[in-house]
Nucleic acid binder design. Structure first.
Length: 298
DNA sequence: GGTAGACCTGGACGC
DNA sequence: GCGTCCAGGTCTACC
């Protein structure tokens, strides 16, 4: 079957999909040439389906197998969340008006970040981005999906992202030796087990109206989530008050404002403070000089 | 509040 | 092929 998902405007399908690296990692698959995104989704009734999405005039269209009425409602709800279709970007565009390094943001409808259907998936993915190279993040996440994800009946080579209850049943040794998560293994296992035993209601944070500092504190309580990871997750939750300062951020900010001299996180903070509640998005959308210089060298 | 060291893996490099 | 070094955030202990 085929159906459309409508979004608030402005909206650009490809811009959301490529907003960060999630589209390169299972169970996402981005087919660049066709500008088509695939995702393997496990529904609450445990049925696993394959979604194929491409942009259209009002948002994007979705191809999948036949769904019952309830399955379709659930799928649509998840897709609206993943693409942030209810997000109003007008105040962000107003805040950045007149800044040349951000002029492209409105033209490309930037400001939405591709989300996973569950916050659990986004937290696990984020933990797997910390203290490692991007290639290792891809390897660890793909392995986690292959090893623990429920298979698509029509193509068992494809799996959905593992649910907390499936991960809760494994053990730390397996996550270390087979999935190669290293010291992150106990963090992922503890998170899965807390959710599975109803000790933690992570998904409620998606709709929480907690003040930003309290929301951040809730994320920081999760083992494996520090300031950088919390800032990234807040961006995913649509709150851009904090900066995800990692080694890459120190590099590009130093190059942009400090002549490439070594800088501290507090200096990155000072540069972006004037953007207030938008600083995370401003950082995300900034047109870094370093990229253009690298382009020139190609 | 700030800092140092450990955590773990895979890739790059030298021999 | 083997050993060593390095990059990457977070946690814990300590000052």
């Amino acid at each position: 079957m085929e159906f459309s998902v409508e979004s608030s405007f402005p909206f650009n399908f490809k811009t959301v999909v490529t907003s960060h690296g999630w589209c390169q990692v299972k169970p996402f698959h981005w087919r660049e040439e066709e500008e088509t995104l695939e995702y393997i989704l496990e529904l609450s009734n445990r049925r696993v389906i394959r979604l194929e999405m491409e942009g259209d005039q009002n948002g994007f269209k979705v191809k999948t197998g036949n769904l019952s009425r309830l399955e379709r409602i659930e799928t649509e709800q998840k897709l609206h969340w993943m693409f942030g279709t209810d997000i109003d970007l007008s105040l962000f565009y107003k805040a950045i008006k007149g800044t040349s390094q951000l002029a492209h943001a409105k033209k490309k409808s930037m400001g939405r970040v591709l989300r996973s259907p569950t916050l659990f998936e986004d937290v696990v993915r984020t933990i797997l981005t910390t203290n490692t190279l991007w290639s290792a993040t891809i390897r660890m996440t793909n392995k986690l999906v292959e090893q623990f994800g429920e298979s698509l009946p029509q193509d068992p080579e494809l799996q959905a992202f593992p649910t907390p209850s499936r991960l809760a049943q494994t053990n730390e040794d397996n996550l270390r030796s087979e999935t190669r998560l290293g010291y992150r293994a106990p963090y992922i296992l503890e998170l899965a087990r807390r959710i599975d035993s109803n000790d933690l209601d992570l998904e409620s944070l998606k709709t929480s109206d907690l003040p930003i500092q309290e929301l951040r504190n809730e994320l920081l309580k999760i083992n494996g989530i520090g300031p950088y990871a919390a800032a990234n997750l807040l961006m995913i939750l649509g709150r851009s008050d904090y900066l995800p300062i990692d080694s890459w951020a120190l590099k590009v900010v130093s190059h942009e404002w400090f002549n490439g001299e070594p800088i501290k996180p507090s200096q990155v903070q000072e540069v972006f403070d004037k953007w207030g509640e938008w600083k995370g998005l401003v950082f995300w959308c900034w047109d870094w000089k370093l990229f253009h210089e690298n382009d020139d060298k190609k």
